[in-house]
Simulated assay, not measured.
Amino acid sequence: MFDHNDGQERKPTILVVDDTPDSLRFLTTTLSLAHMTPLVARDGLAAITLLQHTSPDLILMDALMPKMDGFETTRRIKANSAFQQLPIIFMTGLTDTDDVVRALKVGAIDYVRKPIVVEELLARIHIHLANARVTHASQVALDTSGRPALSVDASGRPLWLTPMAREILERLFPEWPAISRALPAPLRLAIQQLQEMDPTSGTCVPVKSGSSTLEITLLRRTSAHHWLFRLAERREGEEERILAARLGLTAREAEVLLWISRGKQNREVSEILAISPRTVNKHLEQIFEKMGVENRASATAIAVTTLAD
C-alpha cells in the first residue's frame, strides 16, 4: 500500500481488540516497533463503532472479552460486506480445537495462541497483509474491467464479487439475497466440488439455471485461502450461434464443432445430434476448410478461445 501524496509506503494500520491493559500495552508497543500503526478497542462493541469511522488493514481479535466476545464481534464485522476481505487474526489462550474451528467459521483468517510469541505474530501479520493486497488488487482490476468474477475462501464462502458477477447471480437465482454471506446453493456446491478436485487454472464446471447455464472457470488461487473464478452465462443455443457467426459456419456445423470442442468423438456426436457418422465427417471437412485448420485439435482450440472471448 502506498501513499499517493509522497510515494512512500504507508504504515499498515492494525486494530487491536482486547480488554486486558497489559496485553494492549504489549501489542501496541510491538506493532509500533514493527513500523505499524496500532488502533485500540477495549471490547467488541467499541471495535464495531470504530469501524464505522476507519478501515484498518488487519484486526487482532481477543477471543474472550466481556459484553461481546471475539466470536460474536467477528461475526458482526463479517456480516458487513465492506469488511468481508478484512483479515482477522484471533488471539486466544483456548486450546480446544472446537474453539479454533469456531473462530475460522465466523470469519477469522488465522489465530495465534497466548502467550504470544512476537516473531510468530509479526510473521502471520505480514503474510496476511501481503495476501490481502494481492486480493484487493485483483478485485480492483476486475471491477474496473467490468468482468463477472468472484473470490471465495477454502470453504467456498464468498470473499467478494464484482458488480457484474452479482448482477448475473441476482438474475439467475432470484431467490438469492445479494447481502447473503453464502453463494446460491447450486453455485456453492459446484465450487466446493471443484475445490476438492485440486483443479488447475482453466478448469470449468457448469451450473444449470432455467434455460441458462452458468459456467464457473478457475482463474487462479492467490493463496491457500483465496480462489478466483470467472463466471459466464450461456443461454441455450447461444454457443452455437456465437460459433456460427464468428467462424462463418452453418448452424449444423456449429453444433458439430461445439460437441467436438467438448471432447466428444465422432460417434458420440452422431448419436447426440441424431445424424450419421459419415455426415459428421463431412461437416468436419467443411469446418476445417472454413476455419483454415487441418485437424480437430486446432479447431477445438479456436472454438474454445472464441467462446471464452
Rank of each mutant, 00 (worst) to 15 (best):
K208R: 05
T217K: 09
R234K: 10
E239P: 02
H225Y: 10
V205R: 12
R166D: 12
R166S: 14
S151P: 03
P206T: 06
P184C: 05
L172R: 07
R188I: 07
E239M: 10
L243M: 01
R234Q: 12
I216N: 12
R171N: 11
T162K: 09
P163S: 10
L219P: 00
L183D: 00
S209V: 03
R166M: 11
L219I: 03
E175G: 02
Q192C: 03
T217L: 08
L172M: 08
S151H: 06
R171K: 11
V205F: 05
R166V: 08
R157G: 08
V205Y: 03
T203S: 05
R171C: 08
S212A: 13
L228G: 00
R221C: 12
L159Q: 12
L219Q: 04
A178F: 04
G202S: 05
L183E: 01
A165N: 00
R221D: 08
W160D: 13
P174Y: 01
A224V: 01
L189G: 10
L243D: 06
V207I: 02
G210T: 12
V152S: 04
L243E: 05
A178V: 08
H226Y: 09
M164I: 09
R188Q: 15
I168S: 14
Q193S: 14
L231Q: 04
L169F: 05
P184T: 06
T222P: 02
H226D: 15
L243K: 02
F229P: 00
L161Y: 12
E196V: 03
R181I: 07
